[in-house]
C-alpha cells in the first residue's frame, strides 16, 4: 500500500492554473524530490497533500485515509515541515519542543530534547527565547522535531518544504544522514530543495513546470 497517494490534483490561484491532473504515489522507504521553479506550485502542492489547502479537484490519501475527509487520522503518522517554523518566538527551544511532543502525544523527556538540541549545535541556547536566536538556529530548533519524531517512532511519512534553507554545511550533512536513516527504516520522504542533495539512497524526482 502507498504511504501517500494523490490522484488528479489541480490547483488554481488568482486565475492562474498552478498545476493540473497531478498524480503522485509514495511507497514505504521511498524518497521523492519535488522540483520546480519558484512559483511553480511546490509549496501549494505540499499543502494540498497534507490537507492544509484544498485542491480544485482530485483526492489525497495518507496511509489509506482521505486527508480532506479526516485530517486528524490521516496526519497521525505524518510530520510536515513547512516554510513557517511552527513554534512560538516567545518560548524557549525546550518549551516549544516539549509542547510539540505533548501535542503529538510523544513521551519524550526534557533530557532527550536537550540532547537533540546539543546534537544540532544548540548547546547553551535551550532556555533562551527563540526570538533571540539567528534564522539558522531557529530552523535547527524546528528541525529537531525530525529527531524527536524518529526517536519515538511517531511518523512514517515526512513532508519537508525547503528544510535546508538557512542551514550551514554541517547541519545540512546531519539532516541528510537523518533522512537517509529514516528511509532505511522504511519511512517515506517527499521534499523540496533548491540545493543539491547528497543522500545515500535512491531518489525519484518529480518536476512541476511553471505555467503562465
Amino acid at each position: 500500500m502507498s504511504v501517500l497517494s494523490a490522484r488528479n490534483l489541480s490547483c488554481e490561484k488568482q486565475d492562474r492554473i498552478l498545476f493540473e491532473s497531478v498524480s503522485l504515489h509514495l511507497a514505504p522507504g521511498e524518497l521523492v524530490l519535488l522540483r520546480g521553479e519558484n512559483g511553480a506550485g511546490k509549496t501549494s502542492l505540499l499543502r494540498i497533500l497534507v490537507g492544509l489547502s484544498q485542491a480544485q479537484s482530485g483526492e489525497v490519501f495518507i496511509n489509506g485515509i482521505n486527508v480532506h475527509d479526516d485530517i486528524a487520522h490521516a496526519s497521525q503518522k505524518l510530520l510536515y515541515f513547512g516554510h513557517k517554523l511552527g513554534m512560538s518566538a516567545l518560548l524557549s527551544p525546550v518549551e516549544n519542543l516539549r509542547f510539540w511532543c505533548k501535542q503529538h502525544q510523544l513521551r519524550v523527556k526534557d533530557e532527550q530534547i536537550i540532547a537533540v538540541l546539543e546534537l544540532l549545535g544548540l548547546e547553551g541556547l535551550d532556555m533562551l527565547p527563540v526570538k533571540h536566536l539567528s534564522a539558522g538556529q531557529q530552523r535547527r530548533v524546528s528541525l529537531a522535531r525530525l529527531w524527536l519524531s524518529e526517536h519515538s517512532g511517531h511518523s512514517n511519512l515526512w513532508i519537508l518544504d525547503e528544510p535546508m534553507t538557512a542551514l550551514d554545511i554541517q547541519i545540512i550533512a546531519q539532516l541528510e544522514n537523518k533522512i537517509t536513516a529514516f528511509l532505511k527504516q522504511g519511512g517515506s520522504v517527499l521534499m523540496t530543495s533548491h540545493q543539491p542533495l547528497k543522500l545515500e539512497h535512491p531518489m525519484r524526482e518529480f518536476t512541476l513546470e511553471y505555467r503562465w
Binding site: 487520522h73 497521525q76 513557517k84 501535542q103 502525544q105
Partner: peptide, 17 residues
C-alpha cells in the same frame, strides 16, 4: 501569532481535534 509562526498549521495537523 499562532497563524504567523505556523503553530496553527501544526494544530490543524494534530491528532487532537
Amino acid at each position: 501569532d499562532d497563524f504567523m509562526d505556523g503553530t496553527l498549521e501544526q494544530y490543524t495537523l494534530s491528532t487532537t481535534p
